[in-house]
Design a protein around this nucleic acid. Structure first.
Lengths: 242, 242
DNA sequence: CAGCGTAACGGCACTCAGTGTCACTAGCAA
DNA sequence: TTGCTAGTGACACTGAGTGCCGTTACGCTG
Protein backbone atom coordinates (compact mmCIF):
# COMPACT_ATOMS: atom_id res chain seq x y z
CA UNK A 1 0.00 0.00 0.00
CA UNK A 2 3.00 2.20 -0.25
CA UNK A 3 4.62 2.93 -3.57
CA UNK A 4 2.71 2.46 -6.89
CA UNK A 5 -0.10 5.05 -7.43
CA UNK A 6 -2.24 2.24 -8.85
CA UNK A 7 -2.78 3.72 -12.29
CA UNK A 8 -6.08 2.57 -13.79
CA UNK A 9 -5.73 0.31 -16.84
CA UNK A 10 -6.00 2.50 -19.92
CA UNK A 11 -8.00 1.07 -22.83
CA UNK A 12 -6.68 3.32 -25.55
CA UNK A 13 -9.88 3.80 -27.56
CA UNK A 14 -8.54 6.44 -29.88
CA UNK A 15 -5.83 4.27 -31.33
CA UNK A 16 -7.90 3.40 -34.40
CA UNK A 17 -10.15 5.80 -36.36
CA UNK A 18 -13.17 3.66 -35.60
CA UNK A 19 -12.29 3.75 -31.94
CA UNK A 20 -12.00 7.50 -32.08
CA UNK A 21 -15.46 7.81 -33.56
CA UNK A 22 -16.82 5.44 -30.92
CA UNK A 23 -15.33 7.42 -28.07
CA UNK A 24 -16.55 10.66 -29.61
CA UNK A 25 -20.07 9.34 -29.69
CA UNK A 26 -19.75 7.94 -26.18
CA UNK A 27 -18.60 11.31 -24.87
CA UNK A 28 -21.41 13.10 -26.67
CA UNK A 29 -24.00 10.68 -25.38
CA UNK A 30 -22.75 10.89 -21.82
CA UNK A 31 -22.71 14.67 -22.02
CA UNK A 32 -26.25 14.97 -23.35
CA UNK A 33 -27.60 12.65 -20.70
CA UNK A 34 -25.88 14.59 -17.96
CA UNK A 35 -27.06 17.91 -19.38
CA UNK A 36 -30.64 16.70 -19.42
CA UNK A 37 -30.37 15.12 -15.98
CA UNK A 38 -28.79 17.93 -14.00
CA UNK A 39 -28.63 20.95 -16.25
CA UNK A 40 -25.98 22.29 -18.59
CA UNK A 41 -24.13 24.72 -16.34
CA UNK A 42 -24.31 22.35 -13.40
CA UNK A 43 -22.53 19.66 -15.40
CA UNK A 44 -18.74 19.90 -15.36
CA UNK A 45 -16.44 18.55 -17.99
CA UNK A 46 -14.88 16.34 -15.34
CA UNK A 47 -18.21 14.61 -14.86
CA UNK A 48 -18.68 14.08 -18.57
CA UNK A 49 -15.23 12.63 -18.94
CA UNK A 50 -15.68 10.42 -15.89
CA UNK A 51 -19.02 9.17 -17.21
CA UNK A 52 -17.29 8.17 -20.44
CA UNK A 53 -14.44 6.59 -18.51
CA UNK A 54 -11.70 8.95 -19.70
CA UNK A 55 -9.75 11.82 -18.25
CA UNK A 56 -10.78 15.41 -18.42
CA UNK A 57 -7.87 16.25 -20.69
CA UNK A 58 -8.98 13.63 -23.18
CA UNK A 59 -12.37 15.25 -23.48
CA UNK A 60 -10.76 18.39 -24.81
CA UNK A 61 -8.83 16.33 -27.34
CA UNK A 62 -12.16 15.27 -28.84
CA UNK A 63 -14.08 18.50 -28.47
CA UNK A 64 -12.78 22.03 -28.49
CA UNK A 65 -15.27 23.18 -25.91
CA UNK A 66 -17.98 21.96 -23.62
CA UNK A 67 -20.84 23.23 -25.76
CA UNK A 68 -19.45 21.77 -28.97
CA UNK A 69 -20.30 18.32 -27.68
CA UNK A 70 -23.97 19.04 -28.41
CA UNK A 71 -23.28 19.65 -32.11
CA UNK A 72 -20.86 16.81 -32.59
CA UNK A 73 -21.86 15.81 -36.12
CA UNK A 74 -22.24 19.31 -37.49
CA UNK A 75 -18.98 19.25 -39.39
CA UNK A 76 -19.98 16.08 -41.19
CA UNK A 77 -23.26 17.65 -42.29
CA UNK A 78 -21.50 20.67 -43.69
CA UNK A 79 -19.11 18.38 -45.53
CA UNK A 80 -22.08 16.47 -46.98
CA UNK A 81 -23.58 19.73 -48.15
CA UNK A 82 -20.38 20.80 -49.88
CA UNK A 83 -20.27 17.41 -51.56
CA UNK A 84 -23.87 17.72 -52.67
CA UNK A 85 -23.09 21.07 -54.26
CA UNK A 86 -20.03 19.69 -56.00
CA UNK A 87 -22.02 17.01 -57.78
CA UNK A 88 -25.23 18.98 -58.27
CA UNK A 89 -26.96 19.25 -61.62
CA UNK A 90 -25.88 22.61 -63.08
CA UNK A 91 -29.12 22.86 -65.04
CA UNK A 92 -31.24 22.79 -61.96
CA UNK A 93 -32.47 25.96 -60.35
CA UNK A 94 -29.79 27.03 -57.83
CA UNK A 95 -32.30 27.74 -55.10
CA UNK A 96 -33.81 24.32 -55.56
CA UNK A 97 -30.38 22.76 -55.33
CA UNK A 98 -29.65 24.66 -52.17
CA UNK A 99 -32.94 23.57 -50.64
CA UNK A 100 -32.15 19.97 -51.46
CA UNK A 101 -28.73 20.32 -49.87
CA UNK A 102 -30.07 21.84 -46.69
CA UNK A 103 -32.52 18.99 -46.54
CA UNK A 104 -29.55 16.89 -45.51
CA UNK A 105 -29.68 18.70 -42.19
CA UNK A 106 -33.26 17.60 -41.71
CA UNK A 107 -32.31 14.04 -42.59
CA UNK A 108 -29.51 13.91 -40.07
CA UNK A 109 -31.75 15.28 -37.35
CA UNK A 110 -34.49 12.85 -38.20
CA UNK A 111 -32.01 9.99 -38.19
CA UNK A 112 -31.48 10.30 -34.46
CA UNK A 113 -34.71 11.56 -33.03
CA UNK A 114 -33.89 11.02 -29.36
CA UNK A 115 -30.72 13.08 -29.38
CA UNK A 116 -32.39 15.75 -31.49
CA UNK A 117 -35.20 16.10 -28.99
CA UNK A 118 -32.83 16.37 -26.05
CA UNK A 119 -30.75 18.95 -27.87
CA UNK A 120 -33.91 20.84 -28.73
CA UNK A 121 -34.99 21.15 -25.10
CA UNK A 122 -31.49 22.22 -24.15
CA UNK A 123 -31.19 24.87 -26.82
CA UNK A 124 -34.58 26.21 -25.86
CA UNK A 125 -33.61 26.38 -22.21
CA UNK A 126 -29.96 27.45 -22.06
CA UNK A 127 -29.19 30.82 -23.70
CA UNK A 128 -25.56 30.05 -24.41
CA UNK A 129 -26.52 26.84 -26.18
CA UNK A 130 -29.09 28.67 -28.21
CA UNK A 131 -26.40 31.11 -29.31
CA UNK A 132 -24.13 28.22 -30.17
CA UNK A 133 -26.82 26.65 -32.32
CA UNK A 134 -27.45 29.92 -34.09
CA UNK A 135 -23.74 30.08 -34.84
CA UNK A 136 -23.74 26.60 -36.35
CA UNK A 137 -26.74 27.46 -38.49
CA UNK A 138 -24.91 30.54 -39.65
CA UNK A 139 -21.99 28.37 -40.68
CA UNK A 140 -23.94 26.29 -43.16
CA UNK A 141 -25.91 29.33 -44.20
CA UNK A 142 -22.59 30.72 -45.37
CA UNK A 143 -22.01 27.59 -47.39
CA UNK A 144 -25.38 28.05 -49.03
CA UNK A 145 -24.64 31.69 -49.76
CA UNK A 146 -21.30 30.88 -51.31
CA UNK A 147 -22.86 28.36 -53.67
CA UNK A 148 -25.73 30.63 -54.61
CA UNK A 149 -23.41 33.57 -55.14
CA UNK A 150 -21.41 31.63 -57.69
CA UNK A 151 -24.48 30.35 -59.48
CA UNK A 152 -26.24 33.69 -59.56
CA UNK A 153 -23.10 35.29 -60.90
CA UNK A 154 -23.06 32.65 -63.66
CA UNK A 155 -26.53 33.79 -64.59
CA UNK A 156 -25.23 37.30 -65.07
CA UNK A 157 -27.02 38.68 -62.07
CA UNK A 158 -25.29 41.88 -61.08
CA UNK A 159 -26.79 41.70 -57.61
CA UNK A 160 -25.70 38.10 -57.19
CA UNK A 161 -24.03 38.66 -53.85
CA UNK A 162 -27.02 40.33 -52.30
CA UNK A 163 -29.54 37.87 -53.64
CA UNK A 164 -27.34 34.97 -52.56
CA UNK A 165 -27.13 36.21 -48.99
CA UNK A 166 -30.84 36.86 -48.79
CA UNK A 167 -31.84 33.58 -50.41
CA UNK A 168 -29.46 31.60 -48.22
CA UNK A 169 -30.93 33.20 -45.13
CA UNK A 170 -34.43 32.44 -46.34
CA UNK A 171 -33.58 28.81 -47.00
CA UNK A 172 -31.95 28.40 -43.61
CA UNK A 173 -34.93 30.02 -41.93
CA UNK A 174 -37.36 27.74 -43.75
CA UNK A 175 -35.28 24.76 -42.75
CA UNK A 176 -35.18 25.84 -39.11
CA UNK A 177 -38.88 26.52 -39.10
CA UNK A 178 -39.67 23.04 -40.34
CA UNK A 179 -37.16 21.51 -37.98
CA UNK A 180 -38.50 23.27 -34.91
CA UNK A 181 -42.10 22.50 -35.76
CA UNK A 182 -41.20 18.87 -36.21
CA UNK A 183 -39.28 18.73 -32.95
CA UNK A 184 -42.12 20.41 -31.10
CA UNK A 185 -44.40 17.67 -32.39
CA UNK A 186 -42.01 15.16 -30.89
CA UNK A 187 -41.08 13.85 -34.30
CA UNK A 188 -44.66 12.98 -35.18
CA UNK A 189 -45.29 15.46 -38.00
CA UNK A 190 -44.63 14.60 -41.60
CA UNK A 191 -41.36 16.42 -41.91
CA UNK A 192 -41.10 15.73 -45.63
CA UNK A 193 -44.39 17.44 -46.40
CA UNK A 194 -43.57 20.42 -44.22
CA UNK A 195 -40.20 20.78 -45.87
CA UNK A 196 -41.71 20.61 -49.34
CA UNK A 197 -44.18 23.35 -48.49
CA UNK A 198 -41.56 25.57 -46.88
CA UNK A 199 -39.01 25.17 -49.64
CA UNK A 200 -41.70 25.78 -52.27
CA UNK A 201 -42.38 29.13 -50.68
CA UNK A 202 -38.72 30.08 -50.80
CA UNK A 203 -38.16 28.79 -54.31
CA UNK A 204 -41.18 30.71 -55.50
CA UNK A 205 -39.88 33.89 -53.91
CA UNK A 206 -36.36 33.63 -55.24
CA UNK A 207 -36.55 31.84 -58.56
CA UNK A 208 -33.98 33.56 -60.73
CA UNK A 209 -35.72 36.43 -62.47
CA UNK A 210 -38.73 34.19 -62.89
CA UNK A 211 -36.93 32.84 -65.95
CA UNK A 212 -38.32 29.85 -67.77
CA UNK A 213 -37.28 27.37 -70.42
CA UNK A 214 -37.51 28.38 -74.07
CA UNK A 215 -40.63 28.08 -76.11
CA UNK A 216 -42.95 28.90 -73.26
CA UNK A 217 -45.15 31.91 -73.11
CA UNK A 218 -44.10 34.33 -70.44
CA UNK A 219 -46.27 37.00 -68.95
CA UNK A 220 -44.45 39.47 -66.81
CA UNK A 221 -46.26 40.70 -63.74
CA UNK A 222 -45.34 43.82 -61.90
CA UNK A 223 -47.12 46.77 -60.42
CA UNK A 224 -47.33 50.15 -62.07
CA UNK A 225 -45.05 51.38 -59.34
CA UNK A 226 -42.17 49.30 -60.67
CA UNK A 227 -39.26 51.47 -61.85
CA UNK A 228 -38.74 51.44 -65.60
CA UNK A 229 -35.22 50.06 -65.48
CA UNK A 230 -36.46 47.19 -63.38
CA UNK A 231 -39.23 46.45 -65.88
CA UNK A 232 -36.77 46.45 -68.73
CA UNK A 233 -34.34 44.25 -66.86
CA UNK A 234 -36.97 41.70 -66.01
CA UNK A 235 -38.52 41.57 -69.46
CA UNK A 236 -35.09 41.28 -70.98
CA UNK A 237 -34.17 38.46 -68.64
CA UNK A 238 -37.40 36.65 -69.40
CA UNK A 239 -37.06 36.98 -73.16
CA UNK A 240 -33.41 36.06 -73.26
CA UNK A 241 -34.02 32.87 -71.34
CA UNK A 242 -32.36 31.93 -68.10
CA UNK B 1 4.19 52.93 5.64
CA UNK B 2 2.65 50.58 8.11
CA UNK B 3 -1.04 50.49 8.78
CA UNK B 4 -3.59 51.95 6.34
CA UNK B 5 -3.85 50.09 2.99
CA UNK B 6 -4.20 53.47 1.31
CA UNK B 7 -7.45 52.81 -0.50
CA UNK B 8 -7.63 54.77 -3.74
CA UNK B 9 -10.29 57.48 -3.78
CA UNK B 10 -13.39 55.98 -5.38
CA UNK B 11 -15.29 58.30 -7.69
CA UNK B 12 -18.65 56.58 -7.67
CA UNK B 13 -19.64 57.14 -11.29
CA UNK B 14 -22.65 54.87 -11.27
CA UNK B 15 -24.49 56.76 -8.59
CA UNK B 16 -26.63 58.58 -11.13
CA UNK B 17 -28.17 57.07 -14.28
CA UNK B 18 -26.24 59.48 -16.45
CA UNK B 19 -23.06 58.49 -14.68
CA UNK B 20 -23.83 54.86 -15.28
CA UNK B 21 -24.21 55.45 -19.00
CA UNK B 22 -20.98 57.41 -19.06
CA UNK B 23 -19.03 54.67 -17.33
CA UNK B 24 -20.61 52.07 -19.59
CA UNK B 25 -19.43 53.95 -22.61
CA UNK B 26 -16.01 54.51 -21.09
CA UNK B 27 -15.62 50.81 -20.40
CA UNK B 28 -16.75 49.91 -23.91
CA UNK B 29 -14.40 52.42 -25.48
CA UNK B 30 -11.45 51.25 -23.39
CA UNK B 31 -12.21 47.65 -24.24
CA UNK B 32 -12.46 48.22 -27.97
CA UNK B 33 -9.21 50.14 -28.03
CA UNK B 34 -7.43 47.40 -26.12
CA UNK B 35 -8.92 44.70 -28.33
CA UNK B 36 -7.70 46.46 -31.43
CA UNK B 37 -4.31 47.23 -29.93
CA UNK B 38 -3.33 43.85 -28.53
CA UNK B 39 -5.98 41.38 -29.63
CA UNK B 40 -9.17 40.14 -28.06
CA UNK B 41 -7.98 37.02 -26.25
CA UNK B 42 -4.79 38.73 -25.15
CA UNK B 43 -6.79 41.43 -23.41
CA UNK B 44 -7.94 40.59 -19.89
CA UNK B 45 -10.90 42.06 -18.12
CA UNK B 46 -8.53 43.37 -15.48
CA UNK B 47 -6.82 45.49 -18.11
CA UNK B 48 -10.11 46.84 -19.43
CA UNK B 49 -11.25 47.76 -15.96
CA UNK B 50 -7.91 49.33 -15.10
CA UNK B 51 -7.98 51.36 -18.31
CA UNK B 52 -11.37 52.71 -17.32
CA UNK B 53 -10.19 53.37 -13.78
CA UNK B 54 -12.47 50.87 -12.04
CA UNK B 55 -12.11 47.48 -10.46
CA UNK B 56 -12.52 44.23 -12.26
CA UNK B 57 -15.62 43.41 -10.27
CA UNK B 58 -17.25 46.62 -11.41
CA UNK B 59 -16.77 45.69 -15.04
CA UNK B 60 -18.97 42.66 -14.54
CA UNK B 61 -21.61 44.85 -12.95
CA UNK B 62 -21.88 46.75 -16.22
CA UNK B 63 -21.47 43.88 -18.67
CA UNK B 64 -22.42 40.25 -18.23
CA UNK B 65 -19.41 39.04 -20.14
CA UNK B 66 -16.24 40.18 -21.81
CA UNK B 67 -17.62 39.87 -25.33
CA UNK B 68 -20.82 41.73 -24.55
CA UNK B 69 -18.81 44.92 -24.27
CA UNK B 70 -18.53 44.99 -28.05
CA UNK B 71 -22.30 45.07 -28.51
CA UNK B 72 -23.04 47.50 -25.74
CA UNK B 73 -25.89 49.39 -27.37
CA UNK B 74 -27.61 46.39 -28.87
CA UNK B 75 -30.38 46.32 -26.30
CA UNK B 76 -31.25 49.93 -27.02
CA UNK B 77 -31.55 49.20 -30.72
CA UNK B 78 -33.88 46.29 -30.09
CA UNK B 79 -35.95 48.52 -27.84
CA UNK B 80 -36.13 51.14 -30.59
CA UNK B 81 -37.31 48.50 -33.03
CA UNK B 82 -40.05 47.35 -30.71
CA UNK B 83 -41.12 50.95 -30.31
CA UNK B 84 -41.12 51.47 -34.05
CA UNK B 85 -43.39 48.47 -34.45
CA UNK B 86 -45.72 49.67 -31.74
CA UNK B 87 -46.36 52.97 -33.50
CA UNK B 88 -46.16 51.70 -37.07
CA UNK B 89 -48.83 52.46 -39.63
CA UNK B 90 -51.05 49.36 -39.74
CA UNK B 91 -51.97 50.10 -43.35
CA UNK B 92 -48.42 49.82 -44.52
CA UNK B 93 -47.05 46.60 -45.94
CA UNK B 94 -45.68 44.60 -42.99
CA UNK B 95 -42.47 43.73 -44.78
CA UNK B 96 -41.89 47.38 -45.57
CA UNK B 97 -42.46 48.27 -41.95
CA UNK B 98 -40.01 45.62 -40.86
CA UNK B 99 -37.41 46.88 -43.31
CA UNK B 100 -37.84 50.40 -41.99
CA UNK B 101 -37.43 49.16 -38.43
CA UNK B 102 -34.30 47.21 -39.19
CA UNK B 103 -32.96 50.33 -40.84
CA UNK B 104 -32.56 51.65 -37.31
CA UNK B 105 -29.69 49.22 -36.96
CA UNK B 106 -27.99 50.75 -39.96
CA UNK B 107 -28.54 54.20 -38.53
CA UNK B 108 -26.99 53.33 -35.21
CA UNK B 109 -23.97 51.80 -36.90
CA UNK B 110 -23.58 54.77 -39.19
CA UNK B 111 -23.87 57.12 -36.23
CA UNK B 112 -20.58 55.94 -34.78
CA UNK B 113 -18.46 54.94 -37.73
CA UNK B 114 -15.17 54.53 -35.87
CA UNK B 115 -16.47 52.03 -33.35
CA UNK B 116 -18.37 50.19 -36.06
CA UNK B 117 -15.22 49.77 -38.10
CA UNK B 118 -13.22 48.50 -35.16
CA UNK B 119 -15.97 46.06 -34.25
CA UNK B 120 -16.12 44.96 -37.86
CA UNK B 121 -12.44 44.05 -37.99
CA UNK B 122 -12.75 42.26 -34.67
CA UNK B 123 -15.78 40.21 -35.67
CA UNK B 124 -14.06 39.27 -38.89
CA UNK B 125 -10.94 38.16 -37.04
CA UNK B 126 -12.07 36.51 -33.83
CA UNK B 127 -14.37 33.49 -34.28
CA UNK B 128 -16.01 33.78 -30.89
CA UNK B 129 -16.89 37.41 -31.55
CA UNK B 130 -18.32 36.49 -34.92
CA UNK B 131 -20.55 33.95 -33.19
CA UNK B 132 -21.58 36.54 -30.67
CA UNK B 133 -22.54 38.96 -33.41
CA UNK B 134 -24.54 36.30 -35.16
CA UNK B 135 -26.38 35.70 -31.91
CA UNK B 136 -27.23 39.37 -31.57
CA UNK B 137 -28.50 39.50 -35.12
CA UNK B 138 -30.63 36.48 -34.38
CA UNK B 139 -32.13 38.32 -31.45
CA UNK B 140 -33.54 41.17 -33.47
CA UNK B 141 -34.42 38.81 -36.26
CA UNK B 142 -36.74 37.18 -33.75
CA UNK B 143 -38.31 40.53 -33.04
CA UNK B 144 -38.91 41.00 -36.74
CA UNK B 145 -40.39 37.53 -37.03
CA UNK B 146 -42.74 38.09 -34.13
CA UNK B 147 -44.07 41.29 -35.67
CA UNK B 148 -44.45 39.78 -39.11
CA UNK B 149 -46.13 36.69 -37.70
CA UNK B 150 -48.82 38.79 -36.08
CA UNK B 151 -49.35 40.90 -39.17
CA UNK B 152 -49.43 37.99 -41.59
CA UNK B 153 -51.91 36.24 -39.33
CA UNK B 154 -54.06 39.39 -39.47
CA UNK B 155 -54.09 39.07 -43.22
CA UNK B 156 -55.50 35.59 -42.92
CA UNK B 157 -52.37 33.89 -44.08
CA UNK B 158 -52.49 30.30 -42.88
CA UNK B 159 -48.75 29.95 -43.31
CA UNK B 160 -48.09 33.16 -41.39
CA UNK B 161 -45.56 31.62 -39.06
CA UNK B 162 -43.45 30.15 -41.82
CA UNK B 163 -43.58 33.25 -43.99
CA UNK B 164 -42.74 35.43 -41.02
CA UNK B 165 -39.65 33.42 -40.15
CA UNK B 166 -38.45 33.37 -43.73
CA UNK B 167 -39.13 37.03 -44.38
CA UNK B 168 -37.47 38.06 -41.13
CA UNK B 169 -34.39 36.09 -42.05
CA UNK B 170 -34.35 37.66 -45.50
CA UNK B 171 -34.65 41.15 -44.08
CA UNK B 172 -31.88 40.55 -41.56
CA UNK B 173 -29.67 39.11 -44.28
CA UNK B 174 -30.28 42.09 -46.55
CA UNK B 175 -29.49 44.41 -43.69
CA UNK B 176 -26.28 42.57 -42.88
CA UNK B 177 -25.26 42.52 -46.50
CA UNK B 178 -25.63 46.26 -46.81
CA UNK B 179 -23.93 46.82 -43.48
CA UNK B 180 -20.93 44.67 -44.31
CA UNK B 181 -20.52 46.18 -47.76
CA UNK B 182 -20.64 49.64 -46.27
CA UNK B 183 -18.12 48.76 -43.56
CA UNK B 184 -15.80 47.20 -46.11
CA UNK B 185 -15.89 50.49 -47.99
CA UNK B 186 -14.79 52.20 -44.80
CA UNK B 187 -18.09 54.04 -44.57
CA UNK B 188 -17.69 55.65 -47.97
CA UNK B 189 -20.54 53.96 -49.84
CA UNK B 190 -24.00 55.46 -49.98
CA UNK B 191 -25.55 53.25 -47.36
CA UNK B 192 -29.01 54.67 -47.97
CA UNK B 193 -29.02 53.72 -51.63
CA UNK B 194 -27.69 50.25 -50.92
CA UNK B 195 -30.29 49.72 -48.27
CA UNK B 196 -33.07 50.86 -50.58
CA UNK B 197 -31.97 48.43 -53.25
CA UNK B 198 -31.60 45.52 -50.85
CA UNK B 199 -34.90 46.10 -49.10
CA UNK B 200 -36.65 46.53 -52.45
CA UNK B 201 -35.48 43.07 -53.39
CA UNK B 202 -36.85 41.59 -50.19
CA UNK B 203 -40.11 43.51 -50.33
CA UNK B 204 -40.59 42.40 -53.89
CA UNK B 205 -40.01 38.79 -52.95
CA UNK B 206 -42.31 38.79 -49.94
CA UNK B 207 -45.01 41.33 -50.63
CA UNK B 208 -48.20 39.70 -49.47
CA UNK B 209 -49.60 37.93 -52.51
CA UNK B 210 -48.12 40.66 -54.69
CA UNK B 211 -51.10 42.81 -53.73
CA UNK B 212 -51.18 46.44 -54.83
CA UNK B 213 -53.14 49.56 -54.10
CA UNK B 214 -56.50 50.06 -55.79
CA UNK B 215 -56.91 51.80 -59.10
CA UNK B 216 -53.59 50.68 -60.47
CA UNK B 217 -53.18 48.47 -63.48
CA UNK B 218 -51.79 45.14 -62.55
CA UNK B 219 -50.19 42.70 -64.92
CA UNK B 220 -49.64 39.30 -63.41
CA UNK B 221 -46.48 37.55 -64.47
CA UNK B 222 -45.90 33.89 -64.08
CA UNK B 223 -44.58 31.07 -66.16
CA UNK B 224 -46.72 28.57 -68.00
CA UNK B 225 -45.41 26.04 -65.55
CA UNK B 226 -47.29 27.73 -62.72
CA UNK B 227 -49.97 25.47 -61.24
CA UNK B 228 -53.50 26.58 -62.05
CA UNK B 229 -54.55 27.00 -58.44
CA UNK B 230 -51.59 29.23 -57.87
CA UNK B 231 -52.49 31.35 -60.88
CA UNK B 232 -56.03 31.70 -59.68
CA UNK B 233 -54.94 32.56 -56.18
CA UNK B 234 -52.55 35.22 -57.33
CA UNK B 235 -54.92 36.81 -59.82
CA UNK B 236 -57.64 36.77 -57.24
CA UNK B 237 -55.40 38.40 -54.69
CA UNK B 238 -54.32 41.04 -57.17
CA UNK B 239 -57.85 41.90 -58.22
CA UNK B 240 -59.29 41.92 -54.75
CA UNK B 241 -56.63 44.26 -53.51
CA UNK B 242 -54.48 43.65 -50.52
C1' DC C 1 -26.04 71.78 6.93
C1' DA C 2 -26.05 67.44 9.37
C1' DG C 3 -27.32 62.85 9.73
C1' DC C 4 -29.11 58.63 7.60
C1' DG C 5 -29.60 54.98 4.57
C1' DT C 6 -28.87 53.11 0.24
C1' DA C 7 -26.17 51.16 -3.10
C1' DA C 8 -21.98 51.41 -5.79
C1' DC C 9 -17.52 49.89 -5.31
C1' DG C 10 -13.18 47.14 -4.48
C1' DG C 11 -11.21 43.15 -2.78
C1' DC C 12 -11.05 38.40 -1.91
C1' DA C 13 -11.83 33.75 -2.58
C1' DC C 14 -13.76 30.30 -5.27
C1' DT C 15 -15.39 27.33 -9.35
C1' DC C 16 -14.63 25.87 -13.71
C1' DA C 17 -13.42 26.13 -18.81
C1' DG C 18 -9.59 25.70 -21.52
C1' DT C 19 -4.38 25.05 -22.47
C1' DG C 20 0.60 23.65 -22.15
C1' DT C 21 3.54 20.23 -20.62
C1' DC C 22 5.31 15.84 -19.53
C1' DA C 23 5.84 11.19 -18.11
C1' DC C 24 3.75 6.83 -19.15
C1' DT C 25 2.42 3.10 -21.80
C1' DA C 26 -0.64 0.52 -25.15
C1' DG C 27 -0.22 -0.98 -29.52
C1' DC C 28 2.12 -1.45 -33.83
C1' DA C 29 6.33 -2.31 -36.75
C1' DA C 30 10.81 -4.21 -37.63
C1' DT D 1 12.00 -8.97 -28.30
C1' DT D 2 12.99 -4.17 -29.03
C1' DG D 3 11.97 0.34 -30.45
C1' DC D 4 8.87 3.92 -31.98
C1' DT D 5 4.60 6.40 -32.12
C1' DA D 6 0.85 8.45 -30.34
C1' DG D 7 -3.12 8.39 -27.21
C1' DT D 8 -3.69 9.24 -22.49
C1' DG D 9 -3.85 10.99 -17.60
C1' DA D 10 -1.96 13.99 -14.20
C1' DC D 11 -0.52 18.43 -12.91
C1' DA D 12 -0.15 23.26 -13.12
C1' DC D 13 -1.57 27.54 -14.78
C1' DT D 14 -4.40 31.48 -16.81
C1' DG D 15 -8.52 33.85 -17.10
C1' DA D 16 -13.70 34.34 -17.14
C1' DG D 17 -17.40 34.70 -14.20
C1' DT D 18 -19.69 34.74 -9.38
C1' DG D 19 -20.80 35.18 -4.37
C1' DC D 20 -19.83 37.69 -0.45
C1' DC D 21 -18.64 41.40 2.52
C1' DG D 22 -16.68 45.52 4.48
C1' DT D 23 -16.26 50.18 3.12
C1' DT D 24 -17.83 54.56 1.85
C1' DA D 25 -19.38 57.99 -1.53
C1' DC D 26 -23.45 60.17 -2.51
C1' DG D 27 -28.42 61.20 -2.76
C1' DC D 28 -32.00 62.35 0.15
C1' DT D 29 -34.60 63.98 4.16
C1' DG D 30 -35.20 66.86 7.99
Amino acid sequence: MTDSPRRAPVTRAGATPAGRRRLRRALAAAAVDLFVAKGYEATTVDEIAAAAGVGRRTFFRYFDSKDEVLFANHDEIVAEMEEAFAEADPERDPVETACAAVGLVLDSYAAELDVSLKRFTLTRTVPSLRDKEVATVDRYQRVLARYLRARFADQGDETASLRADVAAAAIAAANNHVLRRWLRSGGQDDIGASAAEAFALVIDAFRAERAVAEETTVVAVMTTATPLHSVIAKVNAALNGK
